[in-house]
């Protein structure tokens, strides 16, 4: 690939109790690029995404074998503090989940938790993050109004702003536009395209065209295996594995 590897999995296996959810995954994802995870429901793509900020740790019976590296450091080592890890690895979910607070409070929430108190620092972070999330112009006059009054698409961009406020270097997105209308989806996609200049982004999506539009690389998962990983252009024009071809052309099973 030429560029620096940001995220990496080496011989990764993951289990929910007896269920073998991820099978010997090996992948290296480029820094400041967008990688899309695609595959049918239950194929392990979300599980894999969540291993990068250890979101699965809370699930009873979940365990991993192998390594997950961010900047060449194994994040499952004992000395890794999960709160520190999550400062570096932001996450956006399928459904917008703003806190029942003001727009401003939502954005600066993470910083406040970290102990930042200075108003000027918080205000500047709020503006920068909202601008980066392409939401500033729409909300600058109502920063102290409830975030719940925003539209679904605006709420999702607010969640992206909230994730950006703590200055992560990695952004994990689990179907970030699947609950949005086409206009909001286009805005989120446009945002992803711009954010990749500064962040390493991994996005799980069920929308093939979206994967094609926003990502540089695509990984296809099936039944816990990483079947194929390649440049998105190659994946959508001449995939090597027949299972990939069947999936992306909608002929699966």
């Amino acid at each position: 690939m030429g560029k620096k590897t940001k995220l990496e999995a080496i011989d990764l296996d993951a289990y929910y109790g007896d269920f073998h959810a991820l099978k010997s995954i090996n992948i290296a994802m480029e820094e400041k690029a967008v990688t899309a995870f695609i595959g049918p429901s239950g194929c392990g793509k979300s599980t894999f995404l969540r291993t990068f900020n250890r979101m699965n740790d809370y699930i009873e019976g979940f365990r991993t074998e192998g390594q997950i590296l961010i900047d060449n450091k194994d994040i499952y080592q004992k000395d890794v503090r999960v709160d520190e890890l999550r400062k570096n690895v932001g996450m956006v979910f399928q459904k917008p989940n703003p806190f029942p607070k003001s727009i401003y409070e939502n954005v600066v929430y993470g910083l406040k938790i970290q102990g930042v108190k200075k108003k000027s620092v918080l205000e500047e972070a709020a503006e920068t993050s909202l601008r980066r999330a392409a939401l500033w112009d729409e909300v600058k006059d109502k920063l102290h109004k409830s975030a719940l009054a925003l539209s679904g698409g605006q709420q999702q961009r607010l969640c992206i702003a909230r994730a950006l406020a703590i200055s992560p270097s990695v952004l994990l997105m689990d179907e970030p536009a699947s609950a949005l209308d086409p206009i909001s989806t286009a805005k989120v996609e446009e945002l992803i395209y711009e954010l990749k200049n500064d962040y390493t982004i991994v996005i799980v999506t069920h929308n093939m065209q979206q994967a094609g539009r926003v990502s540089d690389y695509t990984a296809f998962f099936y039944m816990g295996e990483l079947v194929e990983f390649n440049k998105t252009k190659t994946m959508f024009t001449s995939p090597k594995d027949e299972r990939t071809q069947n999936y992306i052309t909608g002929r699966f099973g």
């Binding site: 093939m208 065209q209 094609g212 959508f236 024009t237 001449s238 995939p239 071809q245 992306i248 052309t249």
Partner: peptide, 9 residues
Amino acid sequence: FTPVAVDLR
């Protein structure tokens, strides 16, 4: 149909 891969070709 926004075809891809073999369908697109």
